[in-house]
């Protein structure tokens, strides 16, 4: 057996040295290479997992926001509809009131106008009577070449006016 081991070149000291070499290399690489690299992998995968989770949460949040937006838009549409219908009712009421007031004012303006027109007409008629009377007296005086008494004067004016 010893002869075979010697022939194969197996030296227990060299064998032990190689075992120690490998063990040392394993320990050094473990602390210097594997640990930090696997730690980086772990960190990276944690970041990726966190990002995926965040993205999922954001997606859910977005969905909720969209639902809320939809709900608020629906509510806003209903509220707007209500406001518009209330406004229409209010406008109609106001329209009626305004029309009634305008009608009243119109009536008032018309009656005031009529009164003014009547007063002006009366004044004009009086003025006309006066003018015509004056003219008629002047014509009569010119025609008969004599002055008239007050009674004659009034009589002529009355006659003239009644004949117009």
């Amino acid at each position: 057996m010893d002869g075979l081991i010697e022939k194969l070149g197996i030296d227990w000291r060299l064998l032990a040295a190689q075992v120690v070499n490998f063990t040392l290399l394993l320990i050094i690489l473990h602390s210097l290479l594997y640990k930090p690299v696997l730690e980086i992998f772990r960190k990276r995968s944690n970041i990726i997992l966190r990002s995926i989770e965040e993205s999922r949460k954001n997606k859910e949040g977005l969905k909720l926001l969209e639902q809320r937006k939809e709900k608020e838009a629906r509510e806003a549409r209903i509220a707007a509809k209500n406001i518009v219908s209330r406004a229409e009712i209010l406008a109609k009421t106001q329209e009626g009131k305004i029309l009634a007031r305008a009608k009243g004012e119109r009536e008032k303006l018309i009656s005031e106008g009529k009164t003014i027109v009547k007063a002006q007409k009366d004044a004009m008629v009086k003025e006309l009577e006066k003018e015509i009377g004056g003219l008629a007296v002047a014509v009569v005086e010119k025609f008969f070449n004599k002055g008239l008494t007050k009674n004659e004067h009034e009589k002529i004016v009355k006659n003239i006016i009644s004949s117009i």
Binding site: G9, D11, L14, L15, Q18, V19, T23
Partner: peptide, 12 residues
């Protein structure tokens, strides 16, 4: 290419 090396690894 040394049996001491390969045997050491095999023992480990």
């Amino acid at each position: 290419a040394d049996l001491n090396f390969t045997m050491a690894l095999a023992i480990i």
